[in-house]
Design a protein around this nucleic acid. Structure first.
Length: 830
RNA sequence: GCGAAAGUGGCGGAAUUGGCAGACGCGCUGGACUUAGGAUCCAGUGGGGCAACCCGUGGGGGUUCAACUCCCCCCUUUCGCACCA
């Protein structure tokens, strides 16, 4: 990125001076316990230390920085902490590539990024910094694991899991969405492994229900979470083989039980091996299962054609007693419901397609809106609710009544019951990688799985002499000094768990550690947590909608249940910032070579002009196509503001003045009144736009004000100085260093962030004359200026006395007039 | 395929939520000051027209005195989810 020699006057960058002052006065140090009702906890998602920070980080953190600073000026005890999400695969991969240890690589990135953030003047309370790969942090990550285990929410099971062959590890369901690895994008395969899971499904109902309370979260995140949790209400129904073997299905439509014409079971279903299939069928089924299992998840998703094989086994419908064939089908998911479904082709489109392909009967049993599907050949399934037909004693029952009646019947006969299913799966937490927090569990031949006693935490990740190259099994398994420990319970020789935890475990509770980062006896102090929580403003990217943002809600609820927290939800408000792209609209990435470093830009222009340019480019939630060209306007504006502020001080002469002095509008000149009104309109606009993080229009408002003020010579010196003091403070969240410099130049101290935020003078807003837009037949024809208290009649009279406007009315009849007080008059004529 | 969001000058974006479309800025054009201008200042800048006016917020319909805004259909882009029984 080249930069032409300077085409605008530079404004001196006072950032180093003020950053040192802030450090000295501990401006950003949050109190241990905030004053009641006066706390404000604002945080960006912590960062993955993958190198130095780029313009995207700069944007995110200057946004929370601006919020934090405004809240300080509004008199809040602000906590604005930061930390490092420092465990995880990329560090390992980068370290392997460079021949470094992941820890060395990670910590050097942390140091580099931190230096840059300090250089940018972000108002983080560095005394609360957390780094998830350090033992004083992951000790408590392990502690969390132990608590989950003790409360029955961490368990081991053999399961078919998502495996990334490139990262050589298992992945959580959330990390394998779409059948590809979240980190490297490689297709995911399935493996049967014994792994640790967190029983997040036990919280599915609460996680879903409480989404309704998150009314300051973006609607799209709430929708994504609802769908991800995916609640389905219905029934489970037991079908039987002739020999009595139960085959259980889940359905949301028990009212279609008379329409079942086949059963379909997932190729992965363990039950398949035990079914009494005829030999010829068995061979064909085995071939089909082998083929399905060899397929990658992505391929299977891409294949819209449903395929299956008849097992030759017959099943009895518990309600009708009818015999139906059991098929293996690749569209049945082994992980959802029971891995087996009842095929109702007439009322489920997937079943319909399957039945068409394999010529299975299609029996309509639901009638919608009077048209009886038995009477014609169906071309698609009817999935809407309707009246039951061809259903024996249930005929005529409608919708929910039909569902309830069938469930009642099933329950009476012990062949089924009401049941709710979730799409959400338990959270697979173990990883076969080195760079993570060791799972604090010990496997003893005699005692089974025993948690490491809390007094023995942390289980240190060995750092010396480890071969951490991925081999598909845990590197720690090959470190005997780590693996071999006495059983905490019987003291016999035992083995540690060789796996490490998913990094999302570290990020599920970091917001709690900020509250009490140096506590050595507990993850955090409950009283401090009660005082600081919940997070008032949480800033992050949309990409975490169904991962981290569900996990940290889960942790919050769990910790509440075990008495550590008193809140149900971790964050009151969530804001998804937009991404920063290069000027072509491409994502910045090292491989593309289009990464812009904030350091370079800041060195050339100073911190605050870059901040202004970034804020001014777009509202906070929108993406920004970054180019240096925006800085030009920012610099011009800041030079003007600088001149105005300094000029105002000079005009006033020496001595103190009250920056919040009110003026009696009646005693101001008309020019002064206009400016005084504009000033308070600006304050009002900024308060409103800031709330939505539309800092672009906040800056535009100040630009307008500065433009209207000009040199300010038309104003009495006191008013001019008051305007200057207001501008300095209104800009302070956006231009913290320059505002400090100006605040000092105006004669105030010690920091503009200890000064009060300007308050709107409502009396200043009113005006004696107002401009009314005039429309004739809905078309804008001009304006009239009338006294502010003019009524409709007076405005009409003003229009008629304006020859240009009146010309439109001559020879016409006024049909009606619409008057929007203070805004607009529309005259409809014929 | 389903869902969500978006589409406004050459560009980034405004529009008090149904009330003067294009605020603010970049860029561009002309002028001033200048040895110079890539500084600064002044003026202009959606399109058409000498003008009165006309047209204009992806396209087409509709509701309304009034539509970027609300409703219906379509197109494009981006992002989620992707057989969840």
């Amino acid at each position: 990125m080249t930069d032409t020699p300077h085409s605008t006057p530079r404004i001196p960058d006072p950032s180093a001076k003020w950053q040192a002052r802030w450090e000295e006065m501990q401006l950003f140090r949050a109190p241990d316990v905030p004053r009641p009702g006066k706390k404000y906890y604002v945080m960006p998602m912590f960062a993955y230390p993958s190198g130095d920070i780029h313009m995207g980080h700069f944007r995110n953190y200057t946004l929370t920085d601006a919020i934090a600073r405004k809240k300080m000026m509004e008199g809040y005890d602000v906590m604005h902490p930061f930390g490092w999400d420092a465990f995880g695969l990329p560090a390992e991969q980068a370290a392997i590539k460079r021949g470094l240890h992941p820890e060395a690589w990670t910590l050097s990135n942390v140091a580099q990024s931190k230096a840059t953030l300090r250089r940018c003047g972000i108002s983080f309370d560095w005394s609360r910094e957390v780094t998830s790969c350090l033992p004083d942090y992951y000790k408590w990550t392990q502690w969390m694991f132990v608590q989950l285990f003790r409360h029955g929410l961490a368990y081991r099971k053999e399961a078919e899991v998502n495996w990334c062959g490139s990262c050589n590890t298992v992945l959580a369901n959330e990390q394998a969405a779409g059948g590809v690895c979240w980190r490297c994008g490689n297709p995911v395969t399935k493996k049967n492994l014994t792994q640790w899971f967190f029983k997040i499904t036990a919280y599915a109902d609460r996680l879903l229900r409480d989404i309704d309370t998150l009314d300051e979260w973006p609607e799209n995140v709430r929708t994504l979470q609802r769908k991800w949790i995916g609640k389905s209400v219905g029934a489970e129904i037991d079908f039987r083989l002739a020999d009595g073997t139960k085959i259980r299905v889940f359905t949301t439509r028990p009212d279609t039980i008379y329409g079942v014409s086949f059963m379909a079971i997932a190729p992965e279903a363990p039950l398949l091996a035990h079914l009494p299939m005829p030999a010829a069928r068995r061979a064909e089924v085995d071939r089909f299962v082998a083929k399905a299992q060899a397929q990658l998840t992505v391929e299977r998703l891409a294949n819209e054609e449903k395929e299956g094989v008849d097992t030759g086994v017959w099943v009895i419908n518990p309600v009708t007693g009818g015999q139906i064939p059991l098929w293996v089908a690749d569209y049945v998911l082994s992980g959802y419901g029971t891995g087996c479904l009842m095929g109702v082709p007439a009322h489920d489109q997937r079943d319909f397609e399957f039945a068409k392909k394999y010529h299975l009967p299609i029996r309509p049993v639901i009638k919608v809106a009077g048209s009886d599907p038995s009477a014609y050949e169906m071309t698609a399934a009817i999935e809407d609710a309707g009246v039951m037909i061809n259903s024996g004693p249930f005929d005529g029952l409608d919708g929910q009544a039909g569902i309830d009646a069938v469930i009642a019947h099933l329950e009476q006969n012990g062949t089924g019951r009401a049941q709710t299913q979730f799409r959400l799966r338990d959270w697979l937490i173990s990883r076969q990688r080195y760079w993570g927090a060791p799972i604090p569990m010990i496997h003893c031949a005699k005692c089974g799985v025993v948690p490491v006693p809390e007094s023995d935490l942390p289980v240190l990740l060995p750092t010396g002499g480890i071969d951490f190259l991925p081999k598909g099994r845990s590197p720690l398994a090959d470190v005997p000094e780590f693996m071999n420990v006495p059983c905490p319970s019987c003291h016999a020789p035992a083995q540690r768990d060789p796996d490490t935890m998913d990094t999302f475990m570290c990020s599920s509770w970091y917001f709690l550690r900020y509250i009490d980062p140096h506590n050595e006896t507990a993850p955090f102090d409950r009283k401090k947590a009660a005082a600081w929580l919940p997070i008032d403003y949480y800033m992050g990217g949309i990409s975490h909608a169904t991962g981290h943002l569900i996990y940290f809600r889960f942790f919050t609820k769990f910790l509440k249940d075990i008495g550590w927290l008193s809140i149900d939800e971790p964050a009151v408000r969530l804001f998804n910032h937009g991404m920063v792209m290069d000027s072509q609209g491409q994502v910045m990435s090292k491989s593309k070579g289009n990464v812009v470093s904030p350091v370079d830009v800041i060195e050339r222009h100073g911190v605050d002009p870059v901040r202004v340019a970034m804020f001014f480019a777009a509202p906070g939630e929108r993406e920004v196509l970054w180019s240096d060209s925006g800085i030009v306007g920012a610099e011009r504006f800041l030079v003007k503001a600088d001149q105005f502020v300094r000029g105002a001080r000079v005009a006033l002469g020496r001595g103190h003045f009250d920056p919040d002095m009110r003026f009696d509008v009646g005693r101001l000149t008309s020019a002064e009144r206009t400016i005084y009104r504009k000033l308070h309109q600006t304050i009002k606009k900024i308060d409103r736009d800031f709330a939505a993080l539309q800092l672009n229009t906040c800056i535009a408002a100040v630009m307008e004000l500065v433009g209207e003020l000009g040199s300010g010579e038309q104003l009495r010196p006191e008013l001019r100085a008051v305007c200057a003091a207001a501008i300095v403070r209104l800009l302070a969240p956006m231009t913290p260093h320059l505002s400090e410099e100006w605040w000092e130049a105006l004669g105030f101290g010690p920091s503009v962030f200890r000064a009060p935020w300007p308050v709107v003078d409502e009396a200043a807003l009113s005006s004696d004359m107002i401009v009314i837009a005039v429309q004739i037949n809905g078309k804008l024809r001009g304006q009239v200026t009338v006294p502010a208290d003019a009524d409709e009649k007076a405005v009409i009279a003003a229009v008629q006395s304006e020859p240009k406007l009146n010309a439109h009315l001559l020879g016409k009849t006024v049909v009606k007039t619409i008057y929007v007080p203070g805004r607009l008059l529309n005259i409809v004529v014929k």
